[in-house]
Design a binder for these strands. Structure first.
Lengths: 210, 210
DNA sequence: GTGTAAAATGAGTGAACGCTCACTTTTTAT
DNA sequence: ATAAAAAGTGAGCGTTCACTCATTTTACAC
């Protein structure tokens, strides 16, 4: 069996995905050529087609492997032992720090994906699933807070979650395209204040904070 | 002078823009061919090139003529005689109704534009100008409310405005791609509640509302 | 080493696309 | 009617691109 080791095959696959992502981020999906990808990665076009049947499949794989992890990520990084409000705050902060330092390129990948939704139903479904997954998790946090009495009783969990996800993606778009850094910090602060003012109105005898 | 009337020239130009917009909305910019546009509009490719020097110019004109009018539109539809809070509410409602009934396709056009920002600096600048214009107007409304004492004194006008615009564009994206209609109404309600809770905290002797 | 099968190569292929231009049709002034 | 000039046509040109395949290189078992 002269086959190469499984580990080598996987690392090659990732190298192709890395090269493709870099090229897609630079020129968008449609304008990126498979030659671009091969050149960037230092391998031949033929090698690429040994791992992916079409150019479009590379994009779909990128979406699946590097953009659909949002919900799990949030779930893993927030603990059940903190209050719903702390979890929500942490979600916002995870988003902001991911945008700024951790995975700044993921925002641009999302932008490329959005552009493709018009033409490719599979991409569209992928983004819809992602939307649904994120909403579901954030809404569960809100509902939890309502049940424990931390949040106002008539809070619309789904609507709040949808607002947060839409806001996050809107910010991501403008960020990918050059929103000033200073906005991001102030938006984080103001968004959390708005969220708190809505979810925890200072009606009862809560600490007034600021 | 055998030239045709100016009115006819302009209506022809608009016909080309209409056809192009429809095609762009259907397949995105890159995948739309000038033949598609010509066929859709019922004229020849050559005629098209008599009005626009390149395919890219058609897209840029669409952006300029049909997507950059946001700030003026809001300014015109909100009156100086209503309170800042009423103006803000009206802005949100104008956005929602534009999305749902008035210009539902504009959202998709925005989506196409976003997809092109990676490759085309001119498109990117156009969207940034639009962002800046919208923020400027919404922030002025908030500042006005702060000055008249309607809103909390430490409200961050720019951040609130940036949040509203980002949220609107995020919603537009998901809407273009098939967000359920019911979300939109509930999001409107919840967003206004959050905004009000932040801007007009029931600290002083305001009417409790809700 | 040597054999061998998988991995990799890259020039080539056919199709598609943006744009042109020699030509035809339409419009208006006289 | 006639002429002149602008408007409109669409086959064709040159280029680009996703993908193929005959051939070469590589990695491993023995």
């Amino acid at each position: 069996m002269p086959k190469v080791t499984e580990g080598h095959r996987e690392s090659r696959r990732q190298a192709i995905l890395d090269a493709a992502q870099e090229v897609f981020l630079g020129k968008g999906y449609q304008l990126a050529t498979v030659d671009d990808i091969a050149t960037k990665g230092g391998f031949s076009v033929g090698a690429l087609y040994r791992y992916f049947p079409t150019k479009s499949d590379i994009m779909l794989t990128l979406l699946e492997e590097r953009l659909s992890r949002g919900p799990e990520l949030l779930r893993r990084l927030t603990s059940d032992r903190e209050s719903p409000w702390e979890s929500l705050t942490r979600c916002v902060d995870i988003f902001v720090s991911a945008l700024r330092v951790r995975h700044p390129s993921t925002g641009r990948l999302l932008l490329v994906a959005w552009g493709e939704t018009l033409q490719d139903g599979t991409v569209r479904q992928g983004l819809q699933r992602r939307f649904g997954g994120l909403i579901e998790y954030l809404a569960s946090l809100v509902r939890q807070g309502v049940e424990t009495g931390d949040f106002r009783r008539d809070a619309d969990a789904t609507a709040v979650a949808a607002i947060l996800v839409s806001l996050a993606d809107g910010v991501t778009l403008y960020w990918s395209v050059g929103t000033p850094d200073v906005y991001l910090h102030d938006m984080r602060t103001a968004a959390l204040q708005m969220l708190k003012a809505y979810l925890k109105p200072p009606a009862a005898g809560e600490e007034p904070s600021t």
